[in-house]
Design a protein around this nucleic acid. Structure first.
Lengths: 220, 220
DNA sequence: GCGGTTTCCTAGCGATCGCTAGGTTAGCAT
DNA sequence: ATGCTAACCTAGCGATCGCTAGGAAACCGC
């Protein structure tokens, strides 16, 4: 054998997690065998069990790690827009962020969808993070209503409406290789702006309509 | 044995399909064993194989049948609203229809999501039906734009925005037992109206804003 | 060079999977 | 009643599953 690189425990553990993420997101928990996992890592099965107590343990570790992804960095990124009351900037940035998340990491969607369907007690964890992010957005919308910028709608319903548009679009792009959702038929930026314009014009009080052209320049 | 009811071939076939739909939608294709299937039907495994050539055949029959559900009856139902140019009626009815579909038949969502994830070649069939329905809605929006009622947006993007709001809401309700999406925290009607109002106000030209109150009475 | 530790493999266990050969029984026409 | 067909079951095959006992081989300080 030429270069059967022997790794440290922690390097091997990382390699296992990486390969497992790929396989679990492609074929789900039940569709991924420990033999296939070992082969993908480049070792034999017993090696897996020196780093994880069971297949289930390995799966839970991956799902829980992925659950935490996305939401907090999204919240941090939007904070300056929220402080500046830049509705257009906040919602376009958020929309783009969601679509990019799906596009750059298709495994994310598939893994968590599989988890919700196959192992609900693991999937609920993901729901809680989702709920937290949604409450954050609803809080911003509520503030803007109190300030008179938005019409008096239920903030949580409005937040769901917005997130639904983009979550669904991203999901369709990952699951069906949909050309529009993947930005292959027109720029993602255009889609995001069109949707945000509909959403914001529907939400805003009459005095301040969103301009018809791209608003990239006149945000501040 | 008291009443081991012996059924005709076609009754038995229907019983198998019914039980299989339930199990496949709960646990997916790989998570459902032929033994569990036989037990749920109340027979032994060989009986299944007298009606379906393989487990895979049975699964494909169920998925294909479910794929066809929903879209054409939805299209027929909306036709009168489209002819009368009743935007408010059309979109509220469509929104309610989608949410009811998810709520009354949770197996629908789970089965097709499982199919898309586990067996993409079966799931694509569902995507095509979805695409067809979306094109129908985009066609209506395009007509309304040409008539000057809606602002000049990309009709397909607008259709996706609308469908995304409700598909995502319905999906969350089924997958996570979300209270709002299931209508347990406030009436479904209110949620639908709030979302449609945002969507239509964002889409319409300025002359005709949707009234602030419920528009059930002044549709025509 | 050499013992000791760590990393990895060979080989295979018991359980369960999809599926089937071949026999049994119920229900019908006659 | 009786024979025949269609509906159903018993028993088990070969393959594969998650997982593990016990040994081989690479790497370390010395």
């Amino acid at each position: 054998m030429p270069s059967s690189s022997r790794l440290t425990a922690e390097e091997r553990r990382a390699a296992i997690l990486e390969a497992a993420l790929r396989l679990f997101s492609e074929r789900g928990y039940r569709g991924t065998t420990t033999r296939a996992l070992a082969e993908a890592v480049g070792v034999t099965e017993p090696v897996l069990y020196e780093h994880f107590r069971s297949k289930r343990d390995l799966y839970a570790a991956i799902v829980q790690a992925k659950c935490r992804e996305g939401f907090q960095q999204g919240a941090a990124m939007l904070e300056p827009y929220a402080r500046a009351r830049d509705d257009w900037g906040l919602f376009t940035r958020l929309g783009e962020f969601i679509l990019e998340l799906y596009r750059n990491d298709p495994a994310y969607t598939r893994l968590l969808l599989f988890a919700v369907l196959e192992e609900p007690e693991l999937g609920v964890l993901f729901y809680e993070h989702q709920h937290e992010g949604r409450q954050l957005l609803a809080g911003y919308i509520r503030r803007r209503i109190e300030e008179g910028a938005f019409r008096p709608v239920d903030p949580e319903v409005a937040a769901r409406a917005f997130l639904g548009m983009f979550f669904h679009l991203g999901q369709v792009g990952v699951l069906y290789n949909d050309p529009l959702a993947q930005g292959r038929s027109k720029p993602v930026r255009e889609i995001v702006e069109a949707m945000v314009r509909i959403f914001l014009d529907g939400l805003r009080n009459e005095q301040a309509q969103v301009p018809k052209q791209s608003c990239k320049e006149d945000r501040k």
